[in-house]
Design a protein around this nucleic acid. Structure first.
Length: 564
RNA sequence: UGCGGGGUCGUCUAAUGGUAGGACGCCUGACUCUGGAUCAGGUGAUCGGGGUUCGAGUCCCUGCCCCGCAGCCA
């Protein structure tokens, strides 16, 4: 495991307490966990919690964590997902080493065990249709009824099951069911289906099988085969635990794993549902599984979120059994924490406004020293060219500023970061009254950004030399949904935010920004964190906004708008 | 309605019968060549009702609310 080689915690969440107790009591001499994704979609931030938990626990206790694909339903599963899942886990910083498995690796063994169950009178082939089985299952308040085929001789079931396997029957005509208790208050124990017929090629086993085990018949046995000690899953499987245990007890499995359930991770302004995410992709609401607005690991990566921030978030929210919705701000806080420490600072102007320094010599270029990362001296400095004509941010000027606006305004002096103090002397407008240019003067005594007389402007602005600016596109991202609880009173699609992506062309960035490698996130000073997008190319730069900086001014504005 | 879970600041979480703590958010202030970062302070919670106990978020009884389960999905 590559992340955090640490010692077992004194006291952790309830799962780590169980593991600690099992080790102390001698029930287990080592820890084996597993992360068991179904390859029917991309991994999302919710999976990150399970991944960090399983790999984290194995790591802390000196055990191992298997990656096992739960590929028992070829109708929904694809190789593309097998590949993306592995890439995403690695990117998150975890490593399963040699322990890569597939539930389909165990199809032969599972089939043998099914035969054992039939011989022991604990399973039978049922000829009922899916509808009939549903009818016989009963309801929450009424017990189920036995299938007429429940008591057929084991030899007959054996024969039928073998013929199911050999492809003799069409899909849906027969199933193998466990014989447990049709009157059980736990519906999962009312003779659950163990095998179904599906004449579908499997991504790994091809045409070898036309019957496939259900989740319940595959999962626990796979755990047992691999020697998994603690099988950690989410709350909705709590009802399945009695069945999990029943199968372990009634089959000659080589070990006895224990299932432990925890509450999955959810966020405000977010939906983590594979089938919904699939629809977003298929219906073209987003740019793909890795759209920067998607809560998928691939999306967060493309958005510029560092893996470390995601791991930090998981540590922050903890592990429990109470359903919870974490405010997405906590994720953003974790990400900003990492980025603030690591991201290089750069200048970029998203909405340019021309600024001309009338008393600065034409044709002259000065090289200004700019700090790459004030949080990390080892990141060094760089030179940024300064000339008579500059671009500044439109938002940094107001002709008629309100009281709390500290930036540039007519007659006001501000600092151009790492350069000079400038004072606005004139506002140039076009025929429509639109501001097209600012005329300024500069104080040559303030070179580098400090005044010998101790003057302190209230604002410091970023800027780009017009002679050196490089054009770029910026894609500004915001929450995919316009409300914290999408779908709470209606269709999820109605809550999709029209402002989740804003594309800005005509942005101008400093020369060094032409060379940011894919996968690196930098800070555009005073604006936010940005990273080059997949679509970026030399001469056609595209940057994704990862997150804005915390913006006190925006808050002040919002407040005055509300009160005023 | 049967079964299985769960209810602690706005949100997430800790306290394992002994001062209800932390994180995020929010609000103040300090500092600042990013209205960033950082630092300091503040706001703010045990679902209700009974009981046991010197002492209850924790144990007991009772009520209420929330989530999951009736796929040949996982």
């Amino acid at each position: 495991m590559s992340v955090n080689d640490s010692t077992p915690p004194e006291r952790g969440d309830f799962i780590r307490e169980i593991v600690t107790a099992d080790l102390k009591s001698g029930k287990h001499s080592g820890v084996v966990t597993r992360f068991p994704p179904e390859p029917n979609g991309y991994l999302h931030i919710g999976h990150a919690k399970s991944i960090a938990l399983n790999f984290g626990i194995a790591n802390e206790f000196g055990g191992r964590c298997h990656l096992r694909f739960d590929d028992t339903n070829p109708i929904k599963e694809e190789q593309e997902y097998v590949d993306s899942i592995q890439a995403d886990i690695r990117w998150l910083g975890f490593d399963w080493g040699e322990y890569l498995y597939f539930a389909s690796d165990y199809f032969d063994q599972l089939y043998e065990w099914a035969l054992d169950l039939i011989r022991a009178g604990k399973a039978y082939v049922d000829d009922l249709s899916a509808d009939e089985i549903r009818e016989h299952r009963g309801t929450f308040t009424e017990p189920g009824r036995d299938s007429p085929w429940r008591d057929r001789p084991a030899e007959e079931s054996l024969d039928l099951f073998e013929r199911m396997r050999s492809g003799e029957f069409p899909d849906g005509t027969r199933v193998l069911r466990a014989r447990i208790d049709m009157a059980s208050p736990n519906i999962n124990l009312r003779d659950p289906v163990l095998y179904r017929i599906a004449h579908v090629a499997h991504p790994r086993t091809g045409d070898a099988w036309c019957i496939y085990p259900m989740y319940d018949f595959a999962h626990g046995q796979s755990d047992a085969i691999e020697g998994v000690t603690h099988s950690i899953c989410t709350l909705e499987f709590e009802d399945h635990r009695p069945l999990y245990d029943w199968l372990i007890e009634n089959l000659p499995v080589p070990s006895r794993p224990r299932q432990i359930e925890f509450a999955r991770l959810n966020f405000t302004y977010t939906v983590l549902s594979k089938r919904f995410l699939l629809r977003l992709v298929e219906e073209g609401h987003v740019r793909g599984w890795d759209d920067p607005r998607m809560p998928t690991i691939a999306g967060l990566r493309r958005r510029g979120f560092p893996a470390e921030g995601i791991r930090d978030l998981v540590d922050m929210v903890g592990v429990g059994k109470a359903n919870s919705v974490v405010e997405v701000e906590m994720l953003e806080h974790a990400v900003r924490g990492v980025l603030n420490r690591t991201a290089l600072r750069r200048f970029a102007v998203l909405r340019p406004l021309k600024l001309v320094i009338e008393n600065f010599p034409e044709g002259q270029t000065e090289e200004m020293d700019a700090v790459n990362n004030p949080e990390d001296a080892s990141a060094g400095t760089r030179k940024v060219p300064f000339t008579r004509e500059l671009w500044i941010e439109r938002d940094d000027f107001m002709e008629d500023p309100p009281k709390k606006f500290f930036r540039l305004a007519p007659g006001r002096e501000v600092r151009l970061r790492y350069a000079y103090f400038v004072t606005c002397t004139e506002v140039v407008k076009d025929a429509n009254g639109e501001i097209v240019e600012l005329r300024c003067t500069y104080d040559s005594a303030t070179r580098g950004g400090d005044s010998p007389d101790g003057r302190k402007p209230k604002a410091t602005l970023h800027w780009i030399s017009a002679d050196h600016a490089i054009p770029a596109e910026a894609r500004l991202y915001d929450h995919l949904f316009g409300r914290p609880d999408p779908g709470a009173d209606g269709d999820l699609f109605d809550d999709l935010s029209p402002d989740s992506e804003e594309v800005l062309s005509g942005c101008l960035v400093e020369p060094t920004l032409a060379e940011v490698p894919l996968g690196e996130t930098v800070q555009f000073e005073r604006l936010g964190y940005f990273c080059p997008d997949l679509d970026s190319a030399p001469g056609a730069l595209v940057f994704n906004r990862t997150l804005t900086l915390r913006d006190t001014w925006a808050r002040v504005q919002a407040q005055s708008q509300k009160s005023g």
